Structures are given as structure tokens and as C-alpha cells.
Simulated scan of single mutants.
Amino acid sequence: MNLTGALFEAIDMRSFSNLWYWIALAVLWSTASHWVIGVPFDLIQRARRRGGAAVDEVGALLVLNAQRFARIWHEGGLALTMGVSFALASAMLLGFWYDVEFAQAVVLMVGPLLIVWAMTVRRALEIEAAMSAGRMEPRVMLNMLVLHRLKVQVVGMIAVTFTAFWGMMQNFDIGLDMFLAPAL
């Protein structure tokens, strides 16, 4: 057996039947819901319970991360959007037109994550504007972060459910034509 054969046997490019894919998907969404605009959720919970210095810590982290996301968007948003759109369209074409399972798996991981990225950038721009105007109250800030996390979790639940459905269809070799064909 050559090196390439051993590598592909170890990695198994059939992603939906690979345990590592599902572990990576779980880690991806748990990480995405833990870091709310760059602020760890346990810190947000502590600030909601204790107040005081914990709220100041969350506020400082939030300002830094909101400015960071806003700067990334202002300086390279167009180029980033074009590059990511090209890469995602290429992966979608490979995955769903040419039936490459690895590309399908990448699209089903990255696609919903891009929705979360867009939500995060939008929220960061709102936070940056509110902070510069000096009109962000601590309780409003904490509630906004909790609501943002809830939205990320909803996107994650829908994405994981759809990915599991699609993965089962791929593993059982069921095509969409079965669902789209008229009943006889």
C-alpha cells in the first residue's frame, strides 16, 4: 500500500459515515455558541449574576471584539465576501452537482457558519455604533449577547438536523428523486 492509499484509508473521504466528521461538527457548533462575539458565555453568565467588575470585563471584551470585527469588515469586507462566495460556490458545485461527498460535508459545515458570521458582524457593527454614541447600558448589553447566542444556537440546531438528515440519505444511498418523484 502506498502513502496516498494509507492516508485516504485513515481519513476516509466518505465524510458522513466518519465519526470524526460528526465530532468536528459538534465541536464546531459548541464553540460557535460558547464564544458570543468573542466573549465567552461563562463570563456573560457571571456578569449577569454578580454585576460590578464582571460586567466591566464583558463590556471591555465586547468593545474590543466588536471593533475587531468591524475593522475586518470595513477593511476587507468586499474582498472577503467575494473570496468566500467563490469558495462556497465551488464547493457547492463539486458537492451537489458532481456528487463529491467531502465537498458536501464542507458546505454543510461552513454554509451555516457563514450565516453566524454575518449575524456576528452585523451585531458588532451595531455595538460599535452604540458604544461610540455612549448609549449601551450594561443590562441591555448582556441581554443582547444572550439573545445573539440563542440565535446562533437555533442556526446550529437547524444546521445539525439538516446535516444529519443529509448524511443519513448519503449513507443509505437515498437520492432526492425518491422524495421528488410523484406517487404512483
Rank of each mutant, 00 (worst) to 15 (best):
V106L: 12
M82S: 13
L28R: 06
A164H: 02
V160H: 07
G5T: 08
L28V: 05
N171D: 12
W166C: 09
R71Q: 01
F16G: 10
M178K: 07
L19T: 15
D56C: 05
F179K: 00
L19Y: 11
L7Q: 02
R123C: 03
A129P: 00
G77S: 07
A159F: 00
S90G: 15
Q104E: 15
L142V: 07
G5K: 08
M141L: 10
M157D: 06
L43Q: 15
W20C: 07
F8G: 10
D42A: 11
T163K: 04
A32V: 02
W166S: 06
F96S: 04
S90W: 11
G95I: 01
R135F: 04
T81R: 12
L176K: 02
L62W: 04
P182K: 13
R123Y: 01
S15H: 03
A24G: 15
T120Q: 02
A181Q: 11
I174K: 12
D42S: 10
E9K: 15
G77M: 09
S17N: 11
V27R: 15
L43Y: 09
A60Y: 04
M119E: 10
F69K: 01
D99A: 04
E75K: 13
G134E: 03
D177A: 10
V160P: 07
G76M: 09
W20P: 11
G175P: 06
W20V: 14
A53E: 15
Q153C: 09
V27N: 14
R139Y: 04
K151R: 15
A133P: 06
A54H: 08
G38A: 09
N65Y: 03
A53H: 08
V152E: 02
M157N: 02
L78D: 07
R50A: 13
M144N: 10
R71L: 04
T120P: 00
S17M: 08
L113I: 00
A87P: 04
L43I: 04
R122M: 14
F8L: 07
M131A: 15
S132V: 10
F69Q: 05
T31Y: 06
